[in-house]
Amino acid sequence: MITFIDSCGGMMFNHRRQSQDRTALQRIVDMTASSTLWMNEYSTKLFSGFFAPQVQVDAQFLDKAGPGDFCFVENLDVSAYLPFIEKFVLFYWNRAYPSDMKFSIRLDNGKWMCTQHEDFAGSSHEKITMEVYER
């Protein structure tokens, strides 16, 4: 699962997406190039300017994703899919927005381990952090 969150775990604010950072989106395209990247219709327009033949769009994308596939999630709670999630890739920055949807998964409970932490300059934020958590 791949998502953008703010410093308080917000995924959406005022029913809008957290980010449209092109640098982070390019990283997602590169990271998923040899896999399938599933998403719903809401997220499709984010990737329209990229060469990303791995993108698959379906309203039931969380049900269709298989082992090794990636799911880009902006506007859904994925807690029901937790037993099937192999890793989380989170992109975040040091801003808090008045979010109306939060990332609900606890990654600090001893079941998940941060295997990668990287800071980089984005196109919309001076510093974006990418963290990868695996079981």
Rank of each mutant, 00 (worst) to 15 (best):
M12D: 05
Y81M: 14
Q116N: 14
F50T: 02
C71T: 08
D77M: 04
N40M: 07
A24R: 00
S19V: 04
Q18F: 05
A121M: 15
F50G: 00
D69T: 01
F84M: 10
M101R: 07
A52V: 10
G110C: 06
M130E: 12
L62I: 13
Y97K: 10
Y42K: 05
G122M: 06
I2V: 08
Y42M: 06
D21R: 07
L37I: 06
Q54I: 04
N75T: 06
C8K: 12
H117W: 15
I128N: 00
Q116I: 05
Y133N: 11
D77T: 08
F103S: 13
T23A: 06
T32M: 02
G9L: 04
D21N: 06
Y92I: 08
T129V: 15
S123R: 03
R22H: 13
C8R: 13
E118W: 02
F47H: 15
S48A: 13
H15E: 08
W112H: 08
E86Q: 11
N109W: 06
R17D: 01
W112G: 04
K64I: 02
N40S: 03
V73R: 00
A121D: 14
K111R: 13
K127Y: 12
V78I: 14
S99R: 01
G49H: 04
V78G: 02
V132H: 06
C114N: 02
G110Y: 06
L25T: 00
D30V: 02
N94S: 11
D108G: 00
S79I: 03
E126V: 09
D119M: 12
S34N: 10
F51E: 09
M130Q: 13
L62N: 05
P67M: 15
S124W: 12
G68H: 02
G10I: 00
M31Y: 15
A96M: 12
C8H: 12
L82F: 04
D77R: 11
